Simulated assay, not measured.
Amino acid sequence: MIPTSFDLSGRRALVTGATQGLGRDLAGTLAAAGCDLVVSARDRDGLERLAAQLRSEHGVRVAAVAADLSDAAATETLAASALDAFDGLDVLVNNAGISVPQAVVDVDAATWDRVLAVNLRAPALLGSRVGGAMARAGRGSIVNVSSVAGSLALAEHFSYCASKAALVMATKVLALELGPSGVRANSVSPTVVMTEMGQRVWGEEAKAAPMISRIPLGRFAQPGDVSDAVLFLASDASGMVNGVDLTVDGGFSVA
């Protein structure tokens, strides 16, 4: 039985990047806890299928809003649409993110700008607009999905590492400014998560073994490991947790 402090019945959440991998697991976890959802991604058809599945399996209200978060105007529209869907939001999960591996010497402005737009500007704008509405309502929880790559350098991930490091600090500013109005902001920083994409990149044992050898728990994260951490931060169970970056890496960052 889920403790009552983890029960999100009657709450309303926006989850970005919801149609694939971690985002899909996040949406399912929040719906299972009773949360009504606004799910967003670029794939409109995929969103509609996900929304129908979540309604059927969990009996919650689900609205699908397609948006390309590399576009600032589309991000602003998403914030307004998500707030309108169920007359406000109680939880914001900024999960959408992209990575374009490039050596430092090969970085181009267009790629750099796109990665930072999706990974930093979009969650910052959503945090501002949705967080402002939450503050006026007197409560809310913002959870930003960062990465251990925000604190530990990863070769050929210049823009990605920079964006995730900045996202952690942006989260702390949200926590500082919105906290007095009853809005908490925290981030989670996982290691490799074995989504379909993670399996494609790290599924080969020879490639994965050196990385796994640096993780004291001896494995990569599963989507549920991260989703459970997000559920904790979204719920009243973390009522006094604000401005924290919760590392979900099996001890990788301390080894």
Rank of each mutant, 00 (worst) to 15 (best):
Y160V: 04
E48K: 13
L92Y: 02
A185K: 01
V188Y: 11
E48D: 10
L174F: 05
V93E: 02
A221E: 10
S189E: 10
A41T: 05
S213E: 15
L78G: 07
S56C: 14
Q222D: 11
G239N: 06
A117S: 14
H58A: 15
P123D: 05
Q222I: 00
G182I: 12
E205M: 07
G239V: 07
A64M: 07
S163I: 15
C161D: 11
S147G: 00
N94L: 03
G179I: 00
A255D: 11
S189W: 08
S56Q: 10
E76D: 11
E177S: 09
F6P: 01
R44A: 12
V100S: 09
D43Q: 13
H157P: 03
G138L: 03
Q102V: 11
D236K: 09
A82T: 01
T4R: 13
G203S: 04
S253Q: 09
T191C: 14
R121P: 07
V107M: 15
R129D: 08
N186W: 10
G97S: 08
G150V: 08
L120P: 00
L126F: 12
Q53D: 15
A175C: 04
A237D: 07
H58P: 09
S213D: 13
R12W: 09
N242G: 01
N186K: 07
S235I: 01
V62W: 05
S99L: 15
A80N: 02
I2K: 13
H58Q: 11
A79W: 01
L92I: 04
A170S: 08
L30T: 04
P223N: 08
F158S: 12
S235A: 09
S146C: 03
L167E: 03
A122Q: 02
S187P: 04
S235M: 10
R24D: 01
G46N: 04
A165L: 05
S181A: 15
G239E: 10
N242M: 02
V254P: 08
A85T: 00
G239T: 09
V226M: 04
A52I: 07
P210C: 06
S81F: 00
V39N: 10
G218V: 12
G23P: 06
E204C: 15
V62S: 05
L22V: 11
S56K: 13
E205A: 14
H58W: 06
D68Q: 08
A31V: 07
D7A: 05
G97R: 08
L125H: 03
D7C: 04
P3H: 07
L26C: 01
G140A: 03
G127P: 06
R24E: 14
S238D: 06
S253N: 03
A234C: 15
M169P: 10
D25F: 00
L154K: 14
G10V: 12
V60L: 11
P180V: 02
R24C: 01
A31Y: 11
G179H: 00
H58R: 15
L233D: 09
V15R: 09
N119K: 07
L83F: 00
R11D: 01
Q20F: 03
D43R: 13
P180D: 06
D43S: 13
A103D: 12
L69K: 02
F220V: 03
S235E: 10
